[in-house]
Amino acid sequence: MINERYYPLLATLAVCALLYGYGIFEYRAFSDTYVLGNLLTDNAFLIITAVGMTFVILSGGIDLSVGSMIAFVGVLMAELVTGFGIHPLVAVVISLVFGAAFGAFMGLIIAKFDIQPFIITLAGMFFLRGMCFLINLDSVPITHDFVSAFGGFRIPLPGRGWLSASAIVMLVAVMSGIVFAHYTRFGRNVYAIGGDRQSAQLLGIPVERTIIQVYMLSGIFSALAGVVFAFYTASAYPLAAVGVELDAIAAVVIGGTLLTGGMGFVAGTFFGGIIMGVIQTLIAFDGSLNSWWTKIVIGGLLFGFIVLQRLITRSFSGMRAGAT
């Protein structure tokens, strides 16, 4: 008998395979690696964000500030690179440090004052978006040789496709997310806290420290997503990535992670992000379907996965009812 913890992940893989299979069946071009390469590149920043979000959701929390973080990091990079003439790689380091510090600060308030993560990260979202405008009100290009090199870098795939630098960074981020989640005590503690915070405390897990680290990690990943997004578009725009937090949450849930925390896989999040990309690609290929179907289909998938998870956890004995 298959372990029920894998049901949501299997469902994710099945949905992914079905959608991709349908694409190949309907459109011959879909089987080309060109489509795959584009999927990986176009959704790179979303998937990177979603990997960080996976940890937050696994811990039983939520992080709404990620979209604003992407935009802020872009604006910050533009200012550092174009305005101050700092090398992009140094700017990347500064951005990641900022992301870590900001995430840790939100985590500190969430853990120490026991305030819902939802509302704290909402404030973080407003704050960062406002900070974007403090620096810059318009869309500005980021021009630097390194940025052009990043944009031009390609590893050819068999067929007409290629792996872009964005895609490679994303794949590395996913791999390191998997290692963090499944092969470190920190990762397992995140699962334990999301599964049952009180028990985790009684089992001797450093709950507060772990929660702070979770938001710090999410800050780092969303800052990294911001870097990739900025390099990928070679520009910064304070209104970029509006609503990405929702897409990231959707990718995590469609990837099979329990929204109440404690169960899920980083690998699932990767496929969740790919599913969202495939849906968009399919609708673009179809031409007659309208873009709103993306939202409706994603909403439907969200509903399906939430109900599936509800059924699994309902069958659990000794499961405490989730709080808000």
Binding site: T260, N290, G300, L302, V307, G322
Partner: peptide, 27 residues
């Protein structure tokens, strides 16, 4: 009735609702 946490339950309509609205207005 399904005992889904409010933040999650209403997230579904938050995401899908705009799509529904666009469908009604034909985009």
């Amino acid at each position: 009735y399904l005992d889904i946490q409010p933040i999650i339950a209403t997230l579904i309509l938050m995401v899908a609702g705009r799509g529904i609205a666009q469908m009604i207005t034909d985009g």
